[in-house]
């Protein structure tokens, strides 16, 4: 066993192993750092920026930043959480998120995080972009209106499924998920059993005919806020 690395998050002493990121070490110690693009088992990506912490005052993404001895990490403070709320607000206004009509409501990480951080309504003006819906595949659909560009599907398909069904096209505000075909998901080799089909934190990539299998009110985040399982020390 290699030496442990000691540091603090919001004053709490944390012991981690070399090679761990701040987010992983925190999680092991029962400290939840909000995250969206992070997913266990996938290469950290660092795109949503929700996990941003201040390390000795400097901002870094906790999901990509390795731990170092003696670092002083600020995570769940008013200042940092206000910045995180701004990011979540941005994700809401950038797409078209209508929670009340969404199959994912109650098990959506974006929605759950907004509730956890106390967002009732975004403070930025909605952009109402025109986005596509791809229903072509027999078992899985893509609703680009809800995509938050976390790349979890991209990484899951590439690194876990050994395919490359998804990747990004265009740039800037036009950046979007594209599929490995001329246009439609049905022309890719995506299978409903792929990790990529269940990696989406929101309702952008959804398995058909499963949307209401669990009734509203009994879903993952309906009872307890997102992150409680980590804080309760339950190993995921």
């Amino acid at each position: 066993m290699s030496a442990t690395i000691e540091f603090t998050i919001d004053g709490k002493e944390i012991k981690g192993q070399p090679g761990q990121t701040i987010l992983e070490a925190a999680q092991q110690a029962g400290v939840y750092i909000p995250r969206l693009c992070y997913m266990k088992g996938l290469t950290p990506w660092g795109s949503c920026r929700v996990c941003t912490v201040l390390i000795n005052g400097r901002p870094q993404a906790a999901c990509t930043q390795p731990i170092a001895p003696g670092m002083v990490v600020e995570s769940s403070t008013d200042k940092v959480n206000a910045l995180r709320r701004n990011i979540i607000d941005m994700l809401f206004v950038e797409g078209n998120h209508f929670c009340m009509f969404c199959e994912k409501s109650g098990s959506c990480e974006l929605q759950a995080l907004a509730y956890r951080l106390g967002i009732a309504a975004p403070k930025y003006p909605f952009m109402f972009p025109k986005r596509e819906l791809d229903m072509s595949h027999p078992d899985v659909f893509i609703d680009h209106n809800r995509c938050i560009q976390c790349a979890r599907c991209v990484r899951a398909s590439r690194d876990v499924d050994g395919k490359h069904v998804f990747d990004f096209a265009d740039r800037g505000a036009h950046r979007r998920i594209a599929v490995n075909a001329e246009a439609f998901l049905k022309d890719t080799d995506l299978a409903v059993t792929d990790k990529a089909a269940e990696a989406c934190p929101v309702g952008a990539i959804v398995k058909k005919r499963t949307g209401y299998a669990v009734p509203f009110g009994q879903r993952l985040y309906d009872k307890k806020p997102i992150g409680s399982e980590i804080e309760a020390g339950v190993k995921s």
Partner: peptide
């Protein structure tokens, strides 16, 4: 900047437009 952002991360992709 709106034109040239790569769009990878949320604050730059969305924030600059706002």
């Amino acid at each position: 900047f709106v034109e040239e952002s790569c769009g990878y991360c949320t604050p730059c992709r969305v924030g600059n437009v706002l």
